[in-house]
Amino acid sequence: MFAEFLQYLFSGVTIGATYAMVALGFTLVYNASHVINFAQGEFLMIGGMATVSLLAMGVPLPLAIAMAVALAAVLGVALHKLAIAPARKADVITLIIITIGASIFLRGLAQIIWGKEFHAMPSFSATESVNVMGAVMYTQSLWVLAVAGVLVLLLALFFTRTLMGKAILATSMNPGAARLMGIRTQFVLMLAFMLAAVLGAMAGIMVAPITLTAYDIGIMLGLKGFVAAAIGGMGSGVGAVVGGLLLGIAEAMTAGYISSDYKDAVAFLLILVILFFMPRGLFGARVAERV
């Protein structure tokens, strides 16, 4: 019984950590601009696919990862510079549609460059599984959790200890005032897009040995990441992490104990329940609205 529970938990925590990384990406961009960046999932795909294709060219794993992340970072900056910044005076909803266009564009591009097939990536460690109290765990899960943990820690330090991080926070709270204080808000926004791209790419790379990867894998993972961010209360970093883990675990438990048919529905039911009973999400900001 306990082994069974543990098995569901392992599987839930692993995928949940991935959702959390994607959700953090959504949160970063949302905080800086109130834009829901629907291209976020594509960075997962780019991370995974670039690493796979670099590995196939014989590039060693650490270098392949670094290059894939760098590529995603460049694309993140390009997305902001070429698509978001030129339209910065537009409505938020217009910006959201631009990110949808960008995600379709990136997917189309990836499909031309890398083809439509799924690809497998080898596990980072030689042994693929370990046995923990009767349940089996992928060693790759440990990689996912460790990398997600380190990234969350680094982000927390960045926001609380560095000037740049504080500038981002200030911009998210009140862009007008931030601009008056001499913060270059467009630069801050660019940084947010870049960090979000890096987070997405890292998530995509770490999880690829478990999930396989292809040009369209970003759609579902991106959407789940968004749901995780919404559960956590759009805009809260802690909320994104908790939302991601909660979503992953809820899915695995539903598939294990209730119904695999409706495990995907649970994520969205969770959104409704939270909106009905705690509309700001689990960790949503409690701010007074400006008139």
Partner: peptide
Amino acid sequence: DQTYGPQDTDMTAQLTRIRN
């Protein structure tokens, strides 16, 4: 009788249930 979504990335939960 278990199912998984076409985009799912992990089916260990369903398989665990079948095994048990």
